[in-house]
Structures are given as C-alpha cells and as structure tokens.
Design a protein around this nucleic acid. Structure first.
Lengths: 212, 212
DNA sequence: AGGCGGCGTAGACAGTGTCTACTGGCTCGT
DNA sequence: ACGAGCCAGTAGACACTGTCTACGCCGCCT
C-alpha cells in the first residue's frame, strides 16, 4: 500500500511498483496507475511526459531493489569471490523469479532503447560489481575481466529467461537451475580449484532459497 | 509483398511476417494486419480466435525461418562439431540482430506462456540439434549434455539480448561479439583442444541431423 | 430453385495514451 | 491585505486498439 500523503510523483511510482508485483506487467496502465493513486488519468502527465517515462521510473525502482538485494546477499555471503559470485547469481535468479513482473519491465527493450532515461546508467553499477567479483575470482588470463563478466551476465540473464518461461525442458527444478548456475560459473571461471567443495550439483541445501 | 490470391489465413501471417520485419513488433496490430491484407478488421477472427493466436502463428513462422537458417548454416559449415556449434551460434546471433522484431516476437513471454499454441514444441527441435552437437563436441563427463546444452543456449540467448540493446558496454563490435561467442563455447565445452587446423583425432563428427 | 452455410463487412463497446481547455487553491509581490 | 499569477489536478475529446455481435453476400449442394 503506497504512502498516502506524499507528492504525487513518488506515489505514482510506488503504486506502479505495488501494481506490477501484484497484477503483473500488463496491469501497468497509465490510467490504472492514476486510478489507484486516486487521481484523474491526466494527472501523471504533470510529472511524466509520457507513459514510458513513468514505466522507466518504476523500472529504476526495480533496479535499485535488485541492487539492494545483491548488496545484502554479498554482505551476508561468504568471503571467497567464488561463493560471492554464486550468491550474486542466486540473488539475480531469485529476483527474476519472485519479482517476475518487475524483471520483465526492467528489461523491456523499448525502455532500454530510450537512452535518455538513464536506465543503462542504473544497471551499470551492478555490472561493475560483477566485473570486480570476476576479476577477483578468476586466475589472470589474457581475456579481460569485463568480457568474462559480460559473458557471465549474458549466461545468467539467459538462464533467468529460459527458466522463467519454462523453456529449459529438462532443468525445471530449483536444484537443477542451481546446477545450471554452478555450471555457468565453472564454465566462465574455470572449475573451482578449492578442495573440499563438493562440485556435485543438487546437494547444496541452500538451493531451496531460489524456489518460487 | 505477400501473395495476393491465397487463402486469407496464410495471407495474414505473411503480412505479419513482412510487417514485423519492416515496421517492428509494435506495428503488429490486429487491425493493421487486416488493413494490409485488404480485409476488414473483423476478418482475421474467422481464422484466429484472438490477436495472440495470430501473433503465435507469425512467431511460428519465425521459428521455422530460424530453423532453416540454422540448417543451412550447418549444411555449409565445417564438419567438426566445434565448428558447427560456432556456426550455429553465429546464425542464432545473426538472426537475432537482422530479424530483430521477429526475434522479439518469438520470445515474448505471453506467447510462450499460452502453451496451447505449440510454440514450445516449435522451438524444441532446435534445442535437440543443440543437444546433439554438444554431445558430439564435448568429451564425456558426468553432467548430462542436455544440461550443458541448456546452459549454452541460455548463454547464447543472453548474448543476443544484451548485445541487442547494447547493454554489453564493452563488447559492441561484431568481432567482439564473436569473441564473446567463442568464449561461451570455450566456457561450456572446455577450451578447444585443437591446435591450429589440426583436427582432433578420435572425435568424429557424427551429428548431421538438422531441425525440420 | 431454393435453402443454407461459411466468409467477410460494419458497427458497437470498453479501454488505452495523448492532447487541450479549464478550474480551484495557494503563494507571492506590492 | 489583497489581487495576480501560477501550478497541480480535472474533465473531456480524439484516434487508436481488441473483442463481440448482427448482418449481407456469394457459391455450393441437394
């Protein structure tokens, strides 16, 4: 329930965040948001010149949320870069599955393409975190860390998508997705050289945190 | 220019294919398609109960096109599974970038979620091709080929997406994307053991089956 | 010949995003 | 203290969209 006595601008994006979480992305109508905010359908125009601008503001909130979750996960996670990367990946996938509507909204092409909205800038700090972790977790190589981080992110995002709409026909369980994630890490960073870490997929009890 | 004297059903999807290629996905309005097909806006309802059904038919055409391209690429490509996988990846990325609107349409969540449309079944043969190639290209391991293929596909799809809207801040050139693709292959299959042009002995490319 | 069934038309309806004309109330300058 | 101006929000119009329903028209079959 969004704050009642705040300026309309923040109330609108709060309503939007609440709405996309409960009703899904197609419910993010300009008029519906205005309705739930208790104003007429023309009111948002004072603060957002177009519908996409409002959606972008809501999506920015989503990026902030994701960044917070990743930060929390990294704070409570292990110290080894490998573990931190695994935690980051899990947080990413958990976000994609629990906040599915918001995730869709965040990566809508027509939002990202309108570069005047600063969405790319919003998603960039997350990427730098990933780059740093990759640089720390990987033995030095000739291929620069940002490329590896990009590939890893692409992999992560692809897993989130394909898993999201169930088009990974064989790896549908949460544990299998975790295996997929671990495989991705092994793939891009080389297999984990640490002894005592069981590389067998599916045996990690922390996996269940990802399930919807 | 779609065929003039064909049954309306195929004319509609032909118009849709042409339209999404020239004007982009938001132009795929039911009324606009009907307009370009020279019929009234209610006519498509005879053949497609809803707008999404028509879009799904168009998307199916896209999947068929992608399968054909992949088949062509595999036919003219090298014989080593590694080369074939690289060609497949390039074809996938080329499709995603040249037929961008169609690519968006094909992977729209609301199309994929309506499972009664058989889209998942349409995209499955492509996946099996990938699985076979992965099985042939990779040394035997305890992690099953479908999982590796899934991870590879996720990686591929993620690259296509992130590259598509330019959110891979550092790898924007076509050559760099190719490097990203090669890195993905190295990552999921292990680094290419072939030194130069020397084909690896013992691994015969036994996969020639193609989709459709 | 006549009925009939399918194909396409035309219009209504609710809903959308954008734009414009218009208030009501608040602040601010004099 | 008081009128001017301005600004947030209202209300309605407009061109769209997708869906639904009632209606003709043409050809086919018995």
């Amino acid at each position: 329930m969004p704050d009642e006595d705040a300026d309309l601008r923040s109330r609108l994006v709060a309503v939007g965040v609440h709405l996309v979480a409960t009703e899904g992305m197609p419910a993010l109508t300009l008029r519906e948001i205005a309705r739930r905010a208790g104003v007429s359908h023309g009111a948002p125009r004072r603060y957002f010149p177009t519908h996409l601008a409002l959606l972008s503001a809501i999506a920015r909130e989503g990026f902030a949320d994701l960044a917070d979750r990743v930060a929390d996960t990294l704070r409570t996670g292990g110290t080894h870069p490998r573990d931190r990367l695994m935690a980051l990946g899990r947080a990413y996938l958990a976000f994609a599955s629990s906040r599915r509507g918001m995730f869709e909204l965040m990566f809508r092409h027509d939002l990202l393409e309108s570069n005047s909205l600063g969405l790319r800038e919003t998603s960039l700090p997350l990427f730098t975190v990933l780059v740093d972790l990759v640089a720390a977790a990987r033995p030095p190589s000739e291929v620069p860390p940002p490329v590896v981080a990009g590939a890893l992110w692409a992999n992560l995002h692809g897993i989130a998508l394909l898993w999201g709409w169930g088009s990974l026909p064989l790896a549908t369980g949460a544990g299998e997705v975790d295996a997929l994630l671990r495989a991705a890490l092994d793939a891009h960073l080389g297999t984990d050289p640490r002894p005592g870490t069981d590389p067998r997929p599916g045996t990690d009890p922390r996996v269940t945190a990802v399930a919807r």
